[in-house]
C-alpha cells in the first residue's frame, strides 16, 4: 500500500535533489532545473495532501496553479539567463559577482 509517507519521501528526495542543484551546479540553466525540481516537490506534496480535501479539491487546484506559475517563472528566468549570457558571456553563477559590495 502506498501511503502518504511514501509521497512525502519522494517529495523530500526531489526537493533535496533540487536544492543540491541550486546550491552546487555551475550552470544557471541547471540551477533553474533545480528550482523546477523543488517546485515540483512542493506540487507533489500539494497533490498528496489533496486527498484530505475531498470537498473542494484545494490540493489539486493549488497544484495546477503552481504548475502554471512555475511555467511562467521558467519563461522569465530563461529570459534573464539569456540576457545574463549575452552580457557576461557565461551562465556560471560563480563568475557573476556584481552583487559583491
Amino acid at each position: 500500500m502506498i501511503t502518504l509517507t511514501h509521497f512525502l519521501i519522494v517529495s523530500a528526495c526531489l526537493f533535496s535533489t533540487g536544492l543540491y542543484a541550486v546550491l552546487a551546479r555551475r550552470n544557471a540553466i541547471l540551477v533553474l532545473v533545480g528550482i523546477e525540481l523543488m517546485i515540483n516537490a512542493a506540487i507533489l506534496n500539494l497533490v498528496a495532501f489533496g486527498r484530505y480535501d475531498k470537498a473542494l479539491y484545494g490540493g489539486q487546484v493549488f497544484a495546477l496553479f503552481a504548475i502554471v506559475l512555475a511555467a511562467a517563472g521558467v519563461a522569465v528566468a530563461l529570459a534573464i539567463i539569456l540576457n545574463v549570457y549575452k552580457y557576461y558571456k557565461t551562465v556560471d553563477p560563480e563568475d557573476i559577482r556584481n552583487l559583491k559590495d
Binding site: 553563477p93 557573476i96 552583487l99
Partner: peptide, 14 residues
C-alpha cells in the same frame, strides 16, 4: 559575507 555569489546567498538562506 557579501561575496556576490548567488548560490552562497541561497545557501545561507536555506
Amino acid at each position: 559575507s557579501q561575496t556576490g555569489r548567488v548560490q552562497y546567498y541561497f545557501f545561507v538562506l536555506f
